[in-house]
Design a protein around this nucleic acid. Structure first.
Lengths: 338, 338
DNA sequence: ACTGGCACTCTGCGTGAGCGAGTGCCAGGG
DNA sequence: CCCTGGCACTCGCTCACGCAGAGTGCCAGT
């Protein structure tokens, strides 16, 4: 168990390192933070912290740098979440209030987060699997061609073209539309297949094929579109990463383009809690030098999607966490108002 | 006027520099390209080319590097468009054929272009202003709440929520829907306002307000969504830019995030012709070290949007132009099939 | 248990020499 | 008139050297 003072030393190291981006030595520590002890004492503490794996020195006779484990301890026990200043809060609200539709909300959120944290922002579109159906629309485009439009409670719209095996009359289409909507509006996506299974039985034999095709397409849309989408912004902030560019930045950019990776990253965090993944905890080669701060957001009490930022492990955790949390809250409000 | 051989020297310089990324000297030139003259002669030619502003030397007694003007000449007169190999063509077709909807087509196109050219790819969504209306749908979500869904001939879907001043009956809504569609389906967006101007007159006084609100919203959607969208990919390729990273890559990333800038860039190129903008021709501070190769694409003879790549001025122009043109063609085909 | 002192170990930076690539110019030859 | 070979010159790059400066570890003293 680490003494109180050693924790204080670790905290000071993290804070200084985040600020200066340079290994921090014992003398500088005693000067900048009034620890009330001499550099020599701090050195002993640092030796102990290093022994435990919380800090490391890049080379002999250089200052110390926090390890992933050190950041972990810092985040878990030493740092709070720094609330935003009220001008910042006002700015968020103003910025988000101007949004006109879901795409716009997401786009604004990304820009906002990137600006606020000066890091790369990632926002997941509200997941279809957790949202409910608001409306299904069927449009006859041509003889045997139908367009399916699906509207969710979060305002997301998905469409799909369907070629039917046989033409479907206007009245049958209207009938199907009415039946579909009465059954599945307000329902969650995973419920839908069960609820529509027997629908073809309500139609005549010559139309049953077309109806089945439409339903199959609907289910397919539900499944396929459950695959989630992301929006990313603030990649220019990666240039503030460090100086050994090509080696650090390249894999990060590659990882960011692999949406699958990001989705897994966001998805792994359970529930809507704020989650911080530090360095190697990310289980992705390109991201071992980055931390991911993520949190769920949603219109109600439950999270419909996640958002977060990706930055160097050497980041301002309290500030970043504060910004992420605040933005998530406001986005939730905006969605609820819709 | 430059002699034939001097043009050959310029071509050789560009090709070598693109390959090696290092200033190229007279000796290396005579060795790699069989120019049939001695280094000394080449030196004289180089001096002349430098005099004319086509090449420059980074420092005294270093090799020569093409200037923007040199690249310009190279692109205009010295280089053709390199056609893709047939395996490449097949790969394009296979890759694009798997797309299920418009979003998917765009996403795949971006990845494809980025992979093929190893540069940053930019694809513009089919512009609403150049496309026609396929269908308008009106859905009553609640008493006085209507959702407007607009479907274009390129498969794009835009939706919008409308709060009406007074409830609009189901039959009136159906009536409005039918009238709207019969008037504007198949029409181009700019025509729409004229075509629907007198529609409210067909309704009774108590509904006219609601109808006007809906129409206003429709027109607003047309205007607002004419604002074009982009998809970007392959930013990881920026790391191959050069070694003085932070200074070159940062402004480029920033420019890429400013969609307005990119849209202007793509938009400036007239018609659907292939356009190459080199370095300072881009008229954007962050992009003076980059070239943009763009071309229009569309389902018919006319371009509905543009796509292109952004890369260092030192790029393989013939290859890049070939890839861009080929991809644009295939995307056009895919859209036409839809 | 903390402190002051001391010797030690590195990294980083500036200096200077040597090398090599490349140039410009000039005189000579087809 | 144009091309060629030769020659002196200019720089940028790399490496070795040396010197500070910062930081550490350890030990003896309070």
């Amino acid at each position: 168990m680490l003494s109180e003072r050693r924790l204080a030393v670790l905290r000071a190291i993290v804070q200084d390192y985040v600020g200066t981006e340079e290994p921090v030595g014992s003398k500088a520590l005693t000067e900048r933070h009034n620890l009330q002890v001499s550099p020599a004492t701090v050195r002993n503490d640092m030796a102990a912290l290093e022994e435990e794996g919380y800090i490391a020195q890049p080379h002999t006779s250089a200052g110390r740098v926090p390890t992933d484990k050190g950041y972990r301890l810092f985040v878990d026990r030493l740092a709070g979440v720094k609330p935003l200043s009220s001008p910042e809060r006002r700015a968020i609200q103003n910025f988000l209030d101007g949004a006109v539709d879901l795409d716009d909300v997401i786009a604004r959120t990304v820009r906002l987060l990137a600006q606020l944290t000066r890091q790369v922002a990632v926002v997941q579109y509200p997941s279809l699997s957790r949202s409910t159906v608001r409306h299904v629309e069927l449009l006859a485009l041509a003889q045997a061609r139908v367009m399916l439009v699906l509207i969710t409670d979060t305002g997301r719209v998905e469409q799909r073209m369907i070629d039917c095996p046989a033409p479907l009359g206007e009245t049958s289409l209207a009938d199907l539309r009415a039946r579909l909507n009465s059954r599945i509006v307000g329902q969650r996506f995973p419920e839908v297949p069960r609820l529509v299974a027997d629908l073809p039985d309500a139609f005549g034999p010559e139309e049953r094929g077309a109806v089945s095709t439409v339903l199959a397409s609907l289910l397919e849309t539900l499944v396929e579109q459950t695959e989630e989408r992301l929006m990313i912004g603030g990649t220019a902030n990666l240039t503030r990463f460090g100086q050994d560019f090509p080696l650090t930045i390249r894999p990060v950019l590659e990882a960011l383009e692999e949406q699958v990776v990001l989705l897994r990253l966001l998805g792994e965090a359970k529930g809507s809690e704020m989650t911080v993944r530090i360095g190697h905890e990310n289980a992705h080669e390109g991201l071992t030098a980055t931390s991911v701060v993520s949190v769920g957001y949603g219109s109600g009490d439950e999270a419909v999607a996640k958002l977060g930022v990706v930055g160097p492990t050497r980041m301002d955790y309290p500030g970043t966490m504060g910004a992420v949390r605040a933005v998530a809250r406001y986005v939730g409000q905006i969605l609820a108002e819709n």
